[in-house]
Design a protein around this nucleic acid. Structure first.
Ligand SMILES: [Mn+2]
Ligand SMILES: [Mn+2]
Ligand SMILES: [Zn+2]
Ligand SMILES: [Zn+2]
Lengths: 145, 145
DNA sequence: TACTTCTTGCAAATCATTTGCAAATAGATT
DNA sequence: AATCTATTTGCAAATGATTTGCAAGAAGTA
């Protein structure tokens, strides 16, 4: 939990008129340190041991979701994943790639996803998410040896 | 459960070397009749009342998933949704649109989703899913009156 | 500091899904 | 058609993830 992350966490809460409580700051720091979407369970494990209750983790993630500070990512299984929205545009999240071999999920920050064409008339799109599945670079190399 | 659907259901099971049991035929007919992805619970409700156990519904959906006869759709909540794969290409599902107002999900069979550009080197994409959120045509009209 | 309101921890509840197991059945074999 | 054997099913109980009720504890404000 670096000082820089703590600053950023406090700022996010301030901007949204939310109280700066210890659990919230810790949870935001965990999310700031993560390099891919986390489950509630994973956030719980990464927070300073025993310092935050699991119910509080979930309640906080839901609160941050409501304020659009975090987004849900929809990966392969039925478990919700959460990540900070700061790498997303208001109308779209960056795509996620999940490897069928090693199971890891990678955030594709630099990928370009063109708009969906030929939508039915009258539909207003406010948000878009793209989910890719396949074999990651590491696993492809591994299979050649 | 039309005769045509029953035929198709039997055919799907045959093609995959699966036994044609009454629960499987019923479940496939439910999926053939559905116009958007269904949860296990919804499949259970739509099957002839009391004729199939809920555990069997889930076991069957998982079996059909393994044989790529159905796909999972990832919608807003943490509940898995299932739909027949016959409207999908092997490497991509048609997009789904979920209305933030009425909550309905629409299958966008005719939409065109261009490929993702600028992927990191060495990644092999085997499957893609696109999820849209916004306001559906009906709800937009409703809000103008 | 005192106050008011929001937030937390804890325990229990809920929801979706999965599992163990004995009875039932599909499809192959006689 | 009756028999056989591996699969499949129903039922009840277990599981895993998430949510809720409530009294005690903090945050922000006066
Ligand atoms: Mn991401
Ligand atoms: Mn669909
Ligand atoms: Zn991999
Ligand atoms: Zn709508």
């Amino acid at each position: 939990m670096t000082d820089e992350h703590l600053q950023k966490a406090a700022q996010l809460l301030d901007e949204n008129g939310l109280r700066k409580t210890r659990p919230r700051l810790e949870i935001l720091c965990v999310l700031l340190e993560a390099d891919s979407p986390l489950t509630g369970e994973q956030v719980f494990e990464r927070v300073t041991a025993g310092s935050v209750d699991k119910a509080t983790v979930y309640r906080t993630l839901l609160l941050l979701l409501k304020h659009d500070i975090v987004h849900n990512a929809y990966l392969r299984n039925r478990i919700r994943h959460f990540e900070l929205a700061h790498h997303c545009k208001p109308d779209r999240c960056h795509p996620h790639f999940t490897c069928r071999d090693c199971g890891r999920t990678v955030c594709l920050y630099q990928a370009i996803v063109p708009d969906v064409q030929n939508l039915p008339a009258g539909f207003l799109v406010l948000h878009r998410q793209t989910r890719l599945e396949g074999i990651c670079a590491d696993c492809r190399v591994r299979h050649y040896s």
